[in-house]
Design a protein around this nucleic acid. Structure first.
Length: 552
RNA sequence: GCGCCUGUAGCUCAGUUGGAUAGAGCAACGGACUUCUAAUCCGUAGGUCACAGGUUCGAAUCCUGUCAGGCGUACCA
C-alpha cells in the first residue's frame, strides 16, 4: 500500500516538473509514509513536502497543496488525500480497505504471524550463563526472560535459533566453591574451623555438605584439600547446575546447548586459541604474564590472559569460547549480559578483530541491573554473601506468567526496581491479567454462542464500520510489523506493549458494543473480528511464553 | 579521574528510529454491573521531557557542555 501511494505521489511530482512548478533537475528523495498518532490525521502520512521545500524554495504547505492538487485519485481503497499542519500529506483509507485487511489476516493467519525475514539464517543467543556457584537470583531472571523471549521472537520471524548457556565451571571461583563445601562438611562433622572470607555463605552450601555426609559419611574428613576440593567442587557445581536448570524450566526456559568452560580446557581449545593469538602477535609476554592487546580496540589497558602464576584468567576461556562460537558459522551471535559486565565488551570485540571475524555479526546486549528493594530499603544482591532473593522464590510467589510479563514490561536497558514487598500486590496489578482477560472474555463469547446454539450466517465484514471496529483492525494489522521490529531491535518489550494496547481496544469495544445480539448478521461480523483479536492475543502471549487462558 | 547506562505526570514506565496538541498504568476524585466475565469501561485532574546551548522547516529523540543516580574501571568473576 505504501509503495502504491509513493508511486502516486511520485507521479504527481513528475507532473509538477513538467508543468514547471518545480525544476526539472530536482532529485526526489525516497517517499516515506508513517502512521500518524492521531487518527484524525488519517491512516498514513508523508513528510515529503518538508524534504523538498528547501530544495525547490517553496513553503512546505504550498508545495504539499500542489502535490495533492495534482493527484488523480481513482484508487478504490483511498477515501481522500489532504494537506494538514504545515505541510503533511495525509491519506485516509475507506473502511472497505480495512475490511479487506481483516479478511487477509484471518485467511493467511499462519504466514501473517511468521514473516520470513530470518529465513535460512542461523542465530545464536547466549544468555544467563551464571556461574554454578549459587542459585539464580532476580537479576538473572530478568536476563533469562528477556533472552528467552527474544529467542522466541527471532524464531517466529524465521531464524533458526540456538539458545545457549555458557557454564563457567572452571577457574578460581569454582575452587572457592569446593572449599566452601569442604569447610561446611567439616563443620557439620563437628570440627571447629572458621569459614573463609571469600567463601560462599548461602545455606545451599550447607545442604550440599550434608548430602555428602548422608551418602559417604566422614570418608573425606581426614583427607587434604588437594584431594577433596576438586571432588567437592564437582559435586557442588553439578548439584547447583541441576537446580539452575530446574529454576529455568519452571520459568519456561529451555536451552539447546549447555556449553562447558571446563571442556574448553580439556580439549585444549584455550591453549590453541592463545597460541594462535600469539602467532598473530595479539598476545605478548610481560612480567611473566601473557597479555592481550585490547588497547588496539579501544580498551583502556591490555588485559591479562595467563597470570604470572600460570593460571589462566576467565578472559582466556572467553576468547576460546567466542572463537568457537564464530567458527560455528552463525549469521548472528547475540550475547546478553548484565550491565555490570560492560567493561568486558572491548575484550570480546578484540577477538573478532584479532581473528578476522565479522564484527557486525556480534551483538552484545546489556540488560540493566535489577535493584532489589524491601519496601524502601535496598537489598544487596551478592551470590557470595547469599543476600540475594532466588528467582525460584519470586516465581513461586507471583507465578510464571506475571513474572515473565513483568520482566518484559520495560526496555532491557532501563534500570529496574524490584520491590519484593510489592511483588504480590504487583502481581495482582500486573497488566498480564488485563491482557489475558481480554482473551478469556472472547472465549466466553464463544461459549455463550454455543450455549444459545445459534447458527450464524457467513460473516459480512462490510458491517464492521464503527470507529472502534476500524481501530481494532488497524491495530491487528500492525502485529506483523511489531514482530519484525522487536526482532530487528532485539526489543521484546515492544510486543508486550502491543498486546496490552490490543487488549485495551478490545475491552473498550466490548463495553460499547455487544457481539452477540438479535441481529445475526452483525453478530457474525463482530464475532469474526473478535475472533481475530483472540488469535492475535493468543499468538502474542505464546511467543512471550505466557499462557492464554480461556477462563479466568 | 576515565568509560558505559539512565534522567519524561506524585509513583512505575512507553514514546512508531527527527514529525503535527508528549501518552499509558498505578495512586487521587466523580460516574457505569437485571446484559457476551466489573481482573472491565467512561470522565476529571496531573508536564519547563534534569538543565543550558547547538544542528533545521520541525528535537523527548541527534551533537556539545553541566548536574543527578546506577554500574564498571584487578594478574576478581
Amino acid at each position: 500500500m505504501r509503495q502504491r501511494l509513493a508511486e502516486i505521489i511520485l507521479n504527481s511530482l513528475n507532473d509538477l516538473k513538467k508543468k514547471g512548478v518545480i525544476p526539472e533537475k530536482v532529485e526526489i528523495p525516497p517517499i516515506h509514509f508513517e502512521i500518524p498518532k492521531d487518527r484524525k490525521l488519517g491512516d498514513l502520512a508523508t513528510n515529503i513536502a518538508f524534504l523538498l521545500a528547501s530544495i525547490v524554495k517553496m513553503p512546505p504547505k504550498k508545495l504539499a497543496e500542489e502535490i495533492v492538487h495534482n493527484i488523480f485519485l481513482s484508487h478504490e481503497d483511498i477515501e481522500q488525500v489532504e494537506v494538514a499542519g504545515n505541510g503533511f500529506i495525509n491519506v485516509f483509507f475507506k473502511p472497505l480497505y480495512w475490511q479487506k485487511i481483516l479478511v487477509q489476516i484471518r485467511e493467511n493467519f499462519a504466514s501473517f504471524c511468521s514473516p520470513e525475514i530470518g529465513k535460512g539464517k542461523r542465530v545464536n543467543v547466549e544468555f544467563v550463563s551464571a556461574n554454578p556457584t549459587g542459585p539464580l537470583h532476580v537479576g538473572h531472571g530478568r536476563c533469562a526472560v528477556i533472552g528467552d523471549a527474544l529467542a522466541r521472537i527471532l524464531q517466529k520471524v524465521g531464524y533458526e535459533v540456538t539458545k545457549e548457556y555458557y557454564i563457567n565451571d572452571a577457574g578460581r571461583q569454582m575452587e572457592i566453591l569446593g572449599k566452601s563445601v569442604f569447610i561446611r562438611y567439616k563443620q557439620a562433622l563437628g570440627q571447629e574451623i572458621l569459614f573463609i572470607e571469600e567463601g560462599y555463605q548461602g545455606d545451599y552450601i550447607v545442604d550440599i555438605a550434608e548430602l555428602i555426609i548422608i551418602e559417604k559419611g566422614d570418608l573425606y574428613l581426614s583427607l587434604s584439600d588437594e584431594k577433596v576440593v576438586p571432588l567437592f567442587t564437582k559435586i557442588a557445581a553439578d548439584s547447583i547446575l541441576e537446580q539452575i536448570k530446574k529454576d529455568l524450566e519452571k520459568t519456561r526456559i529451555k536451552f539447546d546447548i549447555w556449553y562447558s568452560e571446563k571442556k574448553l580446557y580439556e580439549t585444549n581449545a584455550v591453549e590453541q586459541t592463545i597460541q594462535l593469538l600469539q602467532k598473530k602477535e595479539w598476545i605478548y609476554e610481560k612480567a611473566d604474564a601473557l597479555w592481550m592487546k585490547t588497547t588496539a580496540v579501544g580498551d583502556e589497558k591490555d588485559r591479562v590472559v595467563i597470570r604470572s602464576s600460570g593460571e589462566p584468567t576467565y578472559y582466556a576461556s572467553d576468547l576460546a569460547y567466542h572463537k568457537d562460537k564464530f567458527e560455528r558459522k552463525y549469521d548472528r551471535i547475540i550475547d546478553i549480559w548484565g550491565a555490570d559486565h560492560h567493561g568486558y565488551i572491548d575484550r570480546i570485540r578484540a577477538i573478532t578483530r584479532a581473528l578476522d571475524f565479522d564484527e557486525d555479526k556480534l551483538s552484545i546486549l546489556l540488560v540493566q541491573l535489577v535493584r532489589l528493594l524491601h519496601g524502601k530499603k535496598q537489598v544487596n544482591m551478592s551470590t557470595r554473601k547469599a543476600t540475594f532473593t532466588p528467582l525460584n522464590e519470586v516465581i513461586e510467589e507471583v507465578g510464571v506468567d506475571a513474572a515473565r510479563f513483568f520482566f518484559l514490561l520495560r526496555r532491557y536497558d532501563s534500570h529496574l526496581d524490584f520491590d519484593l514487598d510489592l511483588a504480590k500486590k504487583q502481581s495482582s496489578e500486573n497488566p498480564v491479567y488485563y491482557t489475558q482477560y481480554a482473551h478469556a472474555r472472547i472465549c466466553s463469547i464463544y461459549r455463550e454462542l454455543e450455549k444459545k446454539s445459534l447458527t450464524l450466517p457467513p460473516p459480512d465484514t462490510s458491517l464492521l464500520q464503527s470507529i472502534e471496529e476500524i481501530e481494532i483492525i488497524k491495530k491487528l494489522s500492525l502485529f506483523q510489523q511489531v514482530l519484525i521490529e522487536a526482532a530487528e531491535t532485539f526489543e521484546p518489550h515492544r510486543l508486550t506493549f502491543y498486546l496490552i494496547e490490543t487488549a485495551t481496544l478490545f475491552h473498550k469495544y466490548y463495553n460499547l458494543h455487544r457481539v452477540i445480539s438479535e441481529d445475526l448478521n452483525v453478530s457474525s461480523a463482530r464475532l469474526y473480528l473478535v475472533g481475530v483479536v483472540k488469535m492475535i492475543l493468543a499468538e502474542g502471549l505464546q511467543i512471550l511464553g505466557i499462557t492464554n487462558p480461556e477462563k479466568m
